[in-house]
């Protein structure tokens, strides 16, 4: 008996006019798996991630969340209901945090559960406290986003996503906008999620992090998955020329 994959993507394709951004990408992510997506800027990583919850719908192909098709063709009203329900199951963390600046940290974390899960104020408060404690931000629960550092903002954004109890978390360069000294605190939170077997898709340019944390690495270039495998193979013995070039450039500057 095999378990239903959390995410299954078949033949994903996406074009902006004549520009083919994604070309026939397929990917299966099982429960608890952590997949890194690496590749040069403009290769389609964000587009791919954002297709999974239909922020940027695909032009072709299918996406399934635990066997249910995400990108179903439905009449507008039904589609709205369908996608809003699906999105609750898919947490997403953005490069620029996108915290709600008019709400406190507590407000940011409770808004979704309060509106969508029909929980009482006491329940959402408890939920927020748990999630914020988890990312080490409980003491800042009554702060506004503008009073936080980038690393703290991103940890709150992660708590906000987790408060919806998603089945999978998508990270789109969660640490790229951070000052170098703030990267580690966010990475630590993500590592902790990994230990708790959260299913994650992580777009990152941090090769070290991908190597440490992920079960599988996808190297994307020009809208295709050029190479895919366990981190040891991808980082130590990549077979593809393009992967090797990319890694050489990326691993040099840091050594």
């Amino acid at each position: 008996m095999t378990e239903q994959p959390i995410i299954e993507i078949r033949n994903a394709a996406k074009s902006y006019g004549a520009l083919e951004v994604l070309k026939d990408i397929s990917l299966t992510v099982n429960r608890g798996e952590i997949v890194a997506i690496i590749g040069p800027s403009g290769s389609g990583k964000s587009t791919f991630l954002r297709a999974i919850n239909e922020l940027d719908p695909l032009s072709g192909g299918e996406i399934f969340l635990e066997g249910e098709q995400v990108n179903k063709r439905l009449p507008p009203r039904e589609y709205e209901r369908h996608i809003n329900r699906i999105r609750q199951e898919i947490g997403m963390v953005f490069q620029h945090f996108n915290l709600f600046p008019h709400l406190t940290v507590r407000g940011n974390v409770t808004l979704g559960p309060r509106l969508l899960k029909g929980l009482s104020q006491a329940d959402v408060d408890k939920l927020a406290e748990e999630q914020l404690d988890h990312v080490g931000m409980l003491e800042r629960i009554d702060y506004f986003p503008s009073q936080l550092s980038g690393g703290q903002k991103q940890r709150v954004a992660i708590a906000r996503a987790l408060a919806m109890k998603p089945k999978v978390m998508l990270f789109d360069e969660a640490t790229s906008a951070l000052d170098p000294e703030l990267v580690e605190e966010v990475n630590a939170v993500m590592k902790r999620l990994a230990q708790e077997h959260m299913t994650m898709l992580i777009v990152t340019h941090e090769m070290g992090f991908a190597q440490d944390v992920c079960d599988r690495v996808l190297f994307m270039d020009q809208g295709v998955v050029v190479e895919e495998g366990p981190p040891d193979v991808i980082f130590r013995n990549p077979t593809n020329e393009r992967t090797r070039n990319f890694l050489r450039k990326h691993l040099e500057g840091r050594s």
């Binding site: 999105r87 609750q88 947490g91 996108n98 915290l99 969508l116 996503a161 919806m164």
Partner: peptide, 18 residues
């Protein structure tokens, strides 16, 4: 208002109106 705000809200599962 920054587009990322709508995206963050919709990603959580809020409707357009919410």
């Amino acid at each position: 208002v920054d587009r990322g705000q709508t995206e963050a809200a919709r990603t959580i599962g809020m409707s357009r109106w919410q």
